[in-house]
Design a binder for these strands. Sequence first.
RNA 1: GCCGCUAUCGUCUAGGGGACUAGGACGCCGGAUUCUCAGUCCGGAAACCGGGGUUCGAAUCCCCGUAGCGGUACCA
Length: 441
Amino acid sequence: MVLRIEDTDRERSTPENFEQILDALRWLELDWDEGPISQHERAPRHRERLEELLESGSAYHDATTGAEVQEWRKENPGRGYRGEPLTGAAAAGAAVRLRVPDEGETVVPDAIRGEISFRNDLQDDPVIARADGSVLYNFAVAVDDADMGITDVIRGDDHLSNTPRQLLVLEALGEAAPRYAHLPLLHGPDGKKLSKRHGAASVQELREAGFLPAAVRNYLALLGWGAEDDETILSTEELVRRFSIDRVGRAAAIFDERKLRWLNGRYMREEPLDRYEAELAADLERNDPAAASAFAAATPEARREACEIVRDKAQTVTEVWPLIAFLFTEPRIGDVDPKVFRKVMKPGTRSLLRKAAAAVAAAEPFDTATVEKGLRELIEVEDVSAAKILQPIRVAITGSNVSPGIFESLVALGRERSIARLERAIGHLGDGLPGDDTDPG
RNA sequence: GCCGCUAUCGUCUAGGGGACUAGGACGCCGGAUUCUCAGUCCGGAAACCGGGGUUCGAAUCCCCGUAGCGGUACCA
């Protein structure tokens, strides 16, 4: 089987465009034998086959414009446009049309929709080459398919009504037709064909938004296709094993980023730590150079530990850094959102933080279990809710009220830095801010 | 206008004449768990586009309508 996958982007196909598409496919870890073919290089061959059709009478010169064709159809309702062949000097400056038979129908064999018939007498003779001799898409693609021995064409639904034209070219050329499979299109939340204005519409944008290739493959497979048992989470190996073209649906699907986010979160939690770290580093490199260098400057152990403590918490790679940045940069207590600050730093907090700092200083060894034990004892002795002590600690050391587990965070930050940040917060609270209290310390 | 495709919860879908009181997943709502957020666990609301047939029996087959999408370029 020689398969051709067709891109449906309507934008002019520039070399940069091709490179971007190939880049996206590489990121998705998809494989192919041969990249896009250059229409420029193919031009002589296209010209050659066009001449054949002109000689056999299957194609003819015709200068009628699109508007004129419309006029013609008004006068000849219920028929496709048929032009009069131009000859001599007039032919030289005219476009070329394919002669469509007046009888019969062209049927498209489609693996997903069955056989679809188009009446020949209703089709206009399509233009297959411009006046300057360059050929048009529907002609070029048919010649290329024949030359490359393509047996199967998989492409978007938007090409379905192009297919009879390509089939007609193939027939005129005396070439065999490939099998087709027209996949349903992807739509944005508004029900229109997915495009740039829908946000993360392209694979490139999905990458930038912090999604994992495996999750994207899994999600995309679920759009318009479902496993017989309706299983949602399928590894790529499983996808390959279970995929079957006749289980592909026929209706267009709407791209739902929320479900992708959920699925991506599942993959994030399964991601091996070294790959997790690599994904994070690559993401920072792209989006936040300052963060990238701060991260790179840390020891391998520190990087690994940071990944370990956030692993379960982020749905996308992009969400990771804000949760662990406090390990690599100095958060400034004055920068904390005042609302958050007031909510957490209550009267009495200052003395509790002092005791907490002492407990942290006393933890030996300095590991999660011991730090937790020390702080739990403090909670017990002070007879307050855990949040009353733990939340202020969180704000003091991370500068935020959202972070990984507090004991893990303290340990990852290290004893000295933790105590320093706690003391700095205590000092800050002494300035008559909401956390100040009557305890003279 | 003409040609073609499509139609099950808000979204992705299972379903191919009786197993349907229409199943699962995301999202949503409620509860439990935890130091925050996230996660996890339990529970809940939520759909067969409309109308005709065919049949003992229709989400499933046929026809009509409606709606959406695509094509109708000297674009790809």
